[in-house]
Simulated assay, not measured.
Amino acid sequence: MFYRKNIPGWERALRVIVGFCTIAFGLLGMSASLLAYLIVATGLTALLTGFVGFCPMCAMVGRRLDSEPGKEKP
């Protein structure tokens, strides 16, 4: 199944950077606890949505990218 990207390029880059930082904090900055694993899972989610370019939560609220710049949405 293919999904249309709903995250702009600058936000994708930001999600990848924040995802790596969050994973590093969860693995290195905290001891092995449930909270550390939740932080790593959050970082993985941000990283995955950054690489793929599709966020299911953004799609649920109706966020879309313009396919053609300068053309208004109906």
Rank of each mutant, 00 (worst) to 15 (best):
F25D: 10
A13P: 00
V52N: 01
R64V: 04
N6M: 06
S31F: 02
A24Y: 13
R64A: 03
G29L: 06
R12K: 14
V16L: 10
C21W: 09
L44P: 03
G43D: 06
L27K: 12
F51Y: 03
T42H: 05
L14F: 10
L38I: 12
W10N: 05
A41T: 14
L28D: 04
L35Y: 14
K71N: 05
K71A: 06
K71S: 03
L48G: 12
L35V: 13
L65S: 04
R4N: 09
K71I: 15
L35S: 13
G43I: 03
M60Q: 11
S67K: 11
A59R: 08
V40N: 06
F2L: 07
T42M: 12
I7Q: 09
V40L: 04
T22Y: 09
L14M: 09
V16P: 03
R12H: 09
C21D: 07
N6A: 03
V52K: 01
P69S: 05
L35F: 15
V52G: 00
P69H: 06
G9Q: 05
A32Y: 13
A32C: 11
F54Y: 14
S31W: 01
R64L: 03
M1T: 15
C55L: 07
L47C: 05
K71Y: 13
L48A: 15
I7H: 10
L47K: 00
Y3S: 07
Y37N: 12
M57I: 08
F51D: 00
S67A: 07
V52F: 01
R63V: 15
F54I: 00
